[in-house]
Every structure is written in C-alpha cells, then in structure tokens.
Design a binder for these strands. Structure first.
Lengths: 223, 223
DNA sequence: TAGGATCCACTGGTGGATCCGT
DNA sequence: ACGGATCCACCAGTGGATCCTA
C-alpha cells in the first residue's frame, strides 16, 4: 500500500458511523459494548486501524511501517473542536538524561500522522460517531521547534531528577500526563540526588487545542 | 512460615500421589488433563507450590522470598534416578559481558533449594507420581566452585560473542539449553565482531546426574 | 541418552484512548 | 477545562517443566 491508497481508503469511510465501519469489517460491536463507554476506550481506534489496514500490531514504531505513518483518531464535536487530548507515546523515565529530540520516539511518531476525526456531540457513544475528513500531517519547521521546546523542557527536568516538578501544566502543545491502568502502578526514575525513586508512568499527549487547530489548518500555530 | 514449618509441610505430603495433593487443595486435575502430558508440563510444579504455600507469583526471585528458598520438583524413577534435567532460570544474553557468578540470578536461585521428588516409572502420568522425601540443599564450597566454573565457561564465551559455540555439551553440572515456546522465538545477543545477532533464548539447567546424586547425598560431587 | 524443541499459565508493559472530579 | 486517573486488548517474557528424535 502506498500513501495515496491509504488516503483513498480513509476518504471512503467519511460519513460512516464507527459502528458501520466495524460491521463492514465483520466486527460485532453490538452486544459486547452496548452502553459501555468506559470499558471500551480503545475500541474505535482499533476499528479504524483494521479498516485502514494498519500492520505491525503492538511492537512497532508506526501503524504503517512502510509509509512511516502513525494513525490517530480524534474525537471532534460538531463544530470541529477536539473533545480530548491525544496520546502519543510513553515517556521513558529511567534514561531521560540521554534522550534527545532528534532520536526520540515522540518525534518519530509525530513526523507523519494520519488524523481521522470521529465526529459527534460530546457524550454520544463512540459507535455513533461519524468518520470525518482525514488529514495527513507533518509538522512545519515552526511547529516542530515548538514541539521540540516542549520536549526539551520536560526531558531536561527529568534528566536532573525533577520528575515530580513535571505536571500537565507544562508544554505549549505537547504535555506529559500519567499513563497507567491505575494509580498503583509504579516505574523506575531517578531523583535529584541520583537516588532511585518509584513513580507513576507518564506519557506524551498532544493538547486538544493543538489538534483542533491543525485539523483546520495543518500549518497552524495556536496560542 | 519458617523453614521448619516448610519442611513439616513437605514431609506431610510424602507418599501421596500428585493427584491426591491437588485434590486436597481443591484443584480438579481430572477432566482437563486426562491422558494429556504434553499440554500440562508445568502443572505438577504449580500444584506443589500451592500445597507448600509458595508466594510471590511470577515476578519473584525465590518461591519463598522470606526464606530465600527455591522450590524444585524432580521426577524420579523408582530407583531414585532423576528422569529429567532441572530448569533453573533464563540466561541473559545481551549483557553477558558484565555478568558475574557472585551477583548472578542462577547463583541466587541455587543458594538454597527445596527439592521435592515426584516418584514413578518413566512414562507414567504425573498425576500418578508419588511425593518423595524432600531435601533442603545448599551447595557445599566444593560444589559451588564447580557450578561457578560451569557458569564462567558459558558466560565467558557469550561475553566474547561466541554464543553459537555454547551447546548443551558444556558444563559438568550446569548446562545451557534453548528455552522458548518454539523455535521461532528470537532474542538479542552480540556476535564476535560486536554485531547484534538474533538467536534463540537460552536457560540454565541442572544435569539429571547431578540432581540424582545430591538427592542421595547433598554433599556429593558426581563424575 | 540427552541435546535441542516445545507446551501452558500468568502477568507486566505497551498501545489504543477516554473518564471524571475539582 | 483540563489535569490526573483509569479502562481494555494484546503480546512478549518469565516461571513451571517435559517431550521427542537421532
């Protein structure tokens, strides 16, 4: 598959409800997920991956390894505003000192993204959301320097052992938030005195105001 | 639980069939495993862990963390000869260069072992094997130096990138053999030129003639 | 006979994200 | 509004070992 074929496939889904996409793949989402939003958070993303032919499963860097394209579904309200922030990837705490933007996982993921909007009023079940017009995005130079600055801020703090000073308030477009099944999970990090500490795993997220903006204008620089 | 309590529990099981031990724990091994040896390889070990109160689950170093005791079941024929070698632990291939006996996982596991024989003719189903007299063993100095020599041999070879020269022929008592669900699994190692190579995962095993001997005389040095 | 191949259960970590109190 | 908390599926790795040909 080449990139044109991927875009054709994505455009062919525009206007369909997620449940219709699932049905066309032979996936039954009816009985198992009726009225259950909290227990099926990742399902719409998985359905779109199937429908667009994403390969590689779970141990990959990109959803489409040959194209180096990452697929992200974005829940939008009817005005086109993103309802949620977008998870990018896990932040490695143990070796933050050595991490650099150029070779980072988050940069690799964000270098080429196919955003697929799932449109519907806030609160409606994901099955009833409709596929919107896909946007294939790569950061402009201006955008990438902001993303890099956000990355450098948090990785710099973690590198000097100040992980607990990294809150979701930091970052203009790219923020860091907890990422774990529940509060009890802990991972290894380093404190200011070089001591090992156990803390909650973190992930990188794109703020909703950023994804909202680039879905309207891929070269936008909101705020 | 202290070590005396553990030994009391183990002795109380002597003479029982494994199926009887399972039944006393409220575990039904009848229907699911009838005549199916290949699909239930690890079951007798799990049943004895239950019966003896092993804790820690799967992310532990020892089966009895507080006592630093490892539990191993050993299939014996009626003459008291071990039918099989005994798996100890996985061998880490990627960082072999830095590994030393003193701090090794295999040494930690073997520093104190409760061997529980499961006695029966070769080929009889594990359910019909009878629990034999338990032996709480720690290596003598003489024994440990042989084990350390075996360890140093293979880890030394792997450290200089000669993993493919490590066969199960090496090692007087402690040998290295493949350990994976099937031949297709690969793990990372380093070749002689420092290049990364993919190879099958390996584990440390105690040769059957060694376990046979120490079950008769814990200070034995066979061969 | 024993070296190399294989089997199951369980779980921690990752990838998919959204929930929900303040 | 959004920062912190949480949910499920999946899979590779570990721990429990024995099988099975040459």
């Amino acid at each position: 598959m080449d990139v044109e074929e991927l875009l054709r496939r994505a455009r062919a889904l525009v206007g369909l409800e997620v449940s219709e996409v699932a049905a066309s793949m032979g996936v039954d989402v009816g009985v198992a997920t009726e009225g259950d939003a909290v227990r099926t958070k990742g399902t719409p993303g998985a359905i779109l991956e199937l429908a667009l032919g994403a390969t590689g499963g779970s141990t990959k860097v990109h959803d489409f390894p040959e194209l180096e394209i990452e697929l992200k579904t974005i829940p939008l309200d009817p005005r086109g505003v993103a309802i949620e922030s977008t998870y990018v990837c896990t932040l490695s705490l143990a070796d933050a000192e050595e991490q650099e933007w150029e070779s980072s996982w988050v940069r690799a993921k964000l270098s080429r993204v196919l955003f697929v909007p799932l449109v519907g009023d806030d609160g409606i079940p994901w099955r009833s959301r409709r596929v919107g017009a896909p946007v294939l995005w790569s950061p402009t130079e201006a955008q990438e320097s902001i993303l890099r600055a956000d990355f450098d801020d948090v990785v710099g703090l973690i590198g000097i052992g100040r992980i607990e000073d990294v809150t979701a308030h930091k970052g203009r477009w790219l923020q860091v938030r907890p990422k774990a099944r529940h509060g009890g999970v802990r991972t290894l990090a380093w404190g200011a005195e070089g001591e090992a500490i156990a803390t909650v795993p973190r992930g990188f997220y794109l703020r909703a105001r950023f994804t909202s903006a680039i879905l309207v204008d891929p070269a936008a620089c909101p705020d």
